[in-house]
């Protein structure tokens, strides 16, 4: 592009109102990357300064130091257990998270559909679910520890109980909000309540369930880390809270970044599945 054209575009951009200036695809990517790069550079700078002043600084470890510590927990087996720590932590955490989320999703699908489609079920169960939903899940964690013990069960139940009520309510509301015309039409086509649920409500509920699952991933991680922090002997949350005692920022920071990466990956995978399996939901008609 020649200089004159560039200036012209810049001037025309400045003439418009702020709300009407929209970045192109490349520009949007650059803008989005900017804060991340800025934070990264700021950190590197600050860490270098602290390390220059005090070589034994623990608060802002340099990238080298983090890499060193990370390689110790990520690539070398632990001397005591003979296991690679970050691997066993990740597997334990993902298992708890997966089972908890899986249970919540199945329960949300079944109850959400029943509540959304059948008025009698809605009248019976909606109040109790609304009541459960307002209880802070962490507040019932002691009860779960007492009832299910300190093992895996209580952690899984915390995740499931923590995210299921909102998912149920969201799905029920979505199904109940399907145009009444659709429900009437299905009946004129001869659908029974079961057939209507299976062929009209279920397929339209599934992409919404994925949406609500994606939004619930955040809280699910919170409950997982909390439960692991309180009572566990392996897991990402357990490790972070363990090394906190030694002020080991060189372990905590890579672990947090690793958790963020895992969460991001799950979100991207779920979105990909939704786009692939439910093209009609994402406005792609053909």
């Amino acid at each position: 592009m020649d200089e004159a054209g560039g200036r012209e575009r810049l001037v025309s951009a400045l003439m418009r109102r702020l709300i009407n200036i929209k970045p192109g695809q490349g520009a949007a990517f650059m803008l989005g990357a900017l804060p991340l790069i800025a934070i990264f550079l700021l950190y590197v700078q600050a860490a270098a300064e602290r390390s220059a002043a005090n070589a034994a600084d623990k608060l802002l470890p340099t990238l080298d130091k983090m890499g060193e510590s990370l390689s110790r927990v990520a690539f070398h087996p632990d001397v005591l257990t003979g296991k690679v720590l970050i691997l066993s932590d990740t597997i334990a955490s993902l298992q708890r998270l997966g089972v908890g989320i899986g249970i919540a999703t199945v329960v949300a699908l079944v109850l959400g559909l029943a509540l959304g489609v059948v008025p009698l079920v809605r009248a019976t169960l909606a109040p109790i679910i609304a009541t459960i939903a307002v209880i802070p899940p962490i507040a019932v964690l002691p009860i779960l520890f007492i009832v299910f013990g300190l093992g895996e069960t209580s952690k899984i139940v915390l995740i499931a109980v923590g995210i299921a009520p909102l998912m149920i309510r969201d799905l029920a509301a979505h199904v109940a909000a399907l145009p009444n015309e659709q429900i009437l039409k299905a009946q004129t086509l001869g659908a029974s309540t079961w057939q209507l649920t299976l062929r009209v409500a279920l397929p339209q509920a599934l992409p919404r369930l994925i949406d609500s699952l994606r939004l619930s991933l955040g809280p699910a991680w919170v409950f997982l880390i909390s439960a692991e922090a309180i009572a566990s002997d392996v897991g990402l949350g357990y490790r972070i809270f363990l090394v906190r005692r030694y002020l080991s920022m060189d372990i905590i920071l890579p672990y947090v970044a690793w958790i963020a990466l895992l969460a991001l990956l799950m979100d991207v995978i779920l979105r990909g599945i939704s786009r692939e399996v439910f093209p009609w939901y994402h406005g792609k008609g053909k």
């Binding site: 339209q204 009609w280 939901y281």
Partner: peptide, 20 residues
Amino acid sequence: PQCDPDRGVVFQRYSVYPHL
């Protein structure tokens, strides 16, 4: 008082299923 297959219907909108 319920819809049955002996009466077909076409509404102004929302008569067809978006997921099919």
